[in-house]
Amino acid sequence: MIQNIKHEVIEQLEKEILFGFYNANDLLETISDMFYNEENFDENWLKDEIDTRLKKHQKESLNWAKPTDFDRLVLAFDSLIKDKIIALHKAGYTRQDGEGDCAEIIEELNNNGIKVLGYCYYHTQDLERAIGDEPTLFIGYDSYNHNDELAMDVANKIVKTLETNGFKVNWNGSLETRIQISAINWQKTVDNIDYNYSRVLDILQPNIPIEDDTILNRKRKPFWKFW
């Protein structure tokens, strides 16, 4: 396994650990998928790196002030979900992924007689900005039916909810621009909680059995398939 490939692996691994959504098994699967065409890919080396770096990140997290910005973001998103605005964390890799994930869960809820007003989300590319040199998290949004008047109401509700939870929010009032959380301090460790589909369903339909679990059991797309 050549050195420059190891460097690329570590670069991606460090990002995913900072994002804080994947456990050791998820990381092994995701990163191995990224480098599926590399000969002599050393999974044992990768397992060791994952174990070492996850433990280091977990130890560092013990000194974080609570609640973290992610804790407050969860509270904000949960509040929006209760107000019938779907709010998804780490919804795919691109805007297209995020929009698609929201559309799928809106359809799932609609099939169970639950109507929503709209949705919001952030995706992996947004997280890359959030852990960057100028940490900012962009939030995509729309109404469930892409109606501009309703979308404006949804956007205003998102802004108000984020501000209520202590975030500095920038938005120019145009539906052509996304909502921006400025100076976010992204701190998260893996907790094996699904903050995406399952959380929405748990909040909005806790007493409704899900006969078709296709959505909940969908496989994560390998990174290389995003291109």
Rank of each mutant, 00 (worst) to 15 (best):
K188T: 10
E16F: 03
H7G: 02
L75Y: 14
V9F: 07
D78M: 09
N25D: 07
P222Q: 10
N156Q: 14
K59A: 13
P67F: 06
D78C: 10
L18W: 01
N165F: 14
D42Q: 07
E107T: 05
I5R: 01
A24V: 05
N4R: 06
T30K: 10
D83I: 00
E14P: 08
N165K: 13
N112I: 02
S182C: 12
I10T: 12
T68L: 05
N110L: 10
D142F: 15
L175M: 11
Q180G: 04
K225V: 08
K6P: 01
Q180A: 12
D51G: 11
R95N: 10
N63G: 03
N147W: 04
L28A: 06
Y22D: 02
D42A: 03
D126C: 11
N196L: 04
Q58F: 10
N147Q: 10
L73K: 09
A91T: 07
Q96G: 09
L162C: 12
L62M: 11
K90S: 08
E104H: 03
F41A: 11
D202E: 13
Y141D: 02
L54I: 15
E8V: 03
I215Y: 10
R53S: 12
G113I: 04
I203D: 08
A103I: 01
Y122W: 11
Y36H: 06
M152E: 11
I81F: 09
A76P: 02
K225P: 02
R72P: 02
R178M: 08
W186S: 11
S79Y: 01
Q3D: 15
S32R: 12
L80H: 00
I208S: 08
D83T: 08
L13C: 09
N217D: 09
L109D: 00
T161L: 07
L28F: 06
T189P: 08
